[in-house]
Design a protein around this nucleic acid. Structure first.
Lengths: 260, 260
DNA sequence: TCTTCTCTCCGTACGTCGTACTGAATAAGT
DNA sequence: ACTTATTCAGTACGACGTACGGAGAGAAGA
């Protein structure tokens, strides 16, 4: 997560940026004003967002099309554009919505526990909304819930007293870890929405590999790990091991600093 | 990275799996047989893969369409299907190709150095081929170069002497870290291929956010980090800090084990 | 040599997608 | 009652992956 802030002219903030950008920011932060003139809206923005999440949950994120979402709502596809600027923007709104249910750790706890709670909270979120992983989102939306979660993670990490640069890196480290574990867990569980192929079917289809090209001589370590059953998922502690190693490393860093 | 192996009947391996799966595995592992009967091919599989990589490098992975790749080669779109089963499969071949240039660390080095070299090698690869990050690939292809790199990382990590389950987790931890840092670095550098918007343009368009909804009171830690300049990229040591913390944590684990 | 069979190349076409444009219906402000 | 802003949605355009089928090339069998 990398947040840059551009140079800004010192005028009225409500004219900064582009109209589209302003529109999107408003959608994320302000409830949509109910409109004065024309006919009443058949739906609310929330309904559209929730329908989008329902489609993504049911059929996978590749099936998240304007037509599908509209169909789920019993509306024409183009009608959605009065609620939302476009597909990508709808997706941003869905993401911020997914972050909304996250609870923040008690600020009185030691930093390490707070970070752990944050990580578990993120892990739960990825379990609940696997489409967060499937999406190749390349930038977090600037929505209130996403930003609050970010801030809270940074806050927890900075309780270490480490310099800002290292706080930022450690926060990123934690997030990458959770994301990575979630990605591999979800990959094994779910279905490729592109093709409708389950994980099992994928491995079945390529099973010729194991007989013809995979040899224990070429891949001795992977073979040993495989045969030990260590590739199988553990139950519930997926992120814990890596998180523990990672935060142990941070604690060492703190000790080294204070020794000086 | 999670590798499952399905149950396999004890017969001729060349009949395992599906025809499509076998085709793909052969494309990855064996040079394509030059075909007996019909007209000579105008291209080679390698040319197709390289054209795909060229398109992805030039215009981004979203522009990687069969039509675009074919155009780059001066061929009809459908002709590609004699070389490659489809778009997804072409992409798998491109990935294995990207891994091909990676060099393996000296096996005589201590495990930690080997893992570090592996991580830097991956980092370099992501820098060279940013489309590896942009793609929301959900499973690594079973190609020789990808598999060799995997095996070598597992091998290096198992020099720690830790149990297999932990070796697997630590390897995943390292990969997630490099992937995460690469993702955020590439996001800041490059262009959203969907929209053709650069990172700068993105921040400009949304700059109204900073004036209207972002307040230092709500986001004190992010503000402090921002003002210290810590969000700016360092030069060259992007992955080093996190990697050091992470491997410090692993070393502690090893010490604890041997103390017993 | 002539036929047959297989393989390459690729034009056409179908169903999907995001969304620009347009126009009809609607309701508030005047 | 008239004006004006807004919603809803049909149609259409240009992208996409790729199924299908046909034309032509060249090796194998007669």
């Amino acid at each position: 997560m990398n947040d840059e802030r551009p140079e800004i002219p010192d005028t009225d903030p409500s004219t900064w940026g582009t109209p589209e950008g302003r529109h999107m920011i408003r959608l994320l932060w302000d409830p949509p004003e109910p409109a004065g003139r024309g006919p009443k809206q058949k739906l609310t923005l929330d309904q559209v967002i929730e329908a989008g999440m329902a489609v993504a949950a049911a059929d996978g994120v590749d099936k998240l099309s304007m037509r599908n979402v509209a169909a789920k709502l019993g509306v024409g596809a183009m009608s959605l554009y009065t609620y939302v600027p476009g597909r990508d923007e709808l997706f941003e709104l869905m993401i911020d919505r997914a972050y909304a249910v996250r609870s923040m750790p008690d600020r009185m706890l030691p930093w390490r526990e707070q970070v752990e709670i944050h990580a578990r909270e993120a892990w739960d979120m990825y379990q609940t909304h696997p489409w967060l992983i499937r999406s190749n989102l390349w930038r977090m939306p600037l929505g209130p819930h996403v930003m609050d979660a970010q801030e809270d993670l940074y806050r927890a990490v900075s309780l270490t007293g480490l310099p800002h640069r290292e706080v930022a890196r450690i926060a990123g480290l934690v997030e990458s870890h959770v994301f990575g574990v979630a990605r591999s867990a979800i990959t094994d569980t779910s279905v490729s929405s592109n093709t409708g192929v389950t994980a099992d079917e994928y491995w079945d289809s390529r099973s010729s590999f194991w007989g013809t090209y995979y040899t224990p001589e070429r891949f001795p370590t992977m073979t040993a790990i495989w045969e030990s059953g260590a590739f199988e998922q553990a139950l519930g502690d997926e992120i814990e091991f890596g998180l523990a190693r990672l935060l142990d490393g941070v604690e060492i860093l703190i000790e080294r600093r204070t020794d000086r």
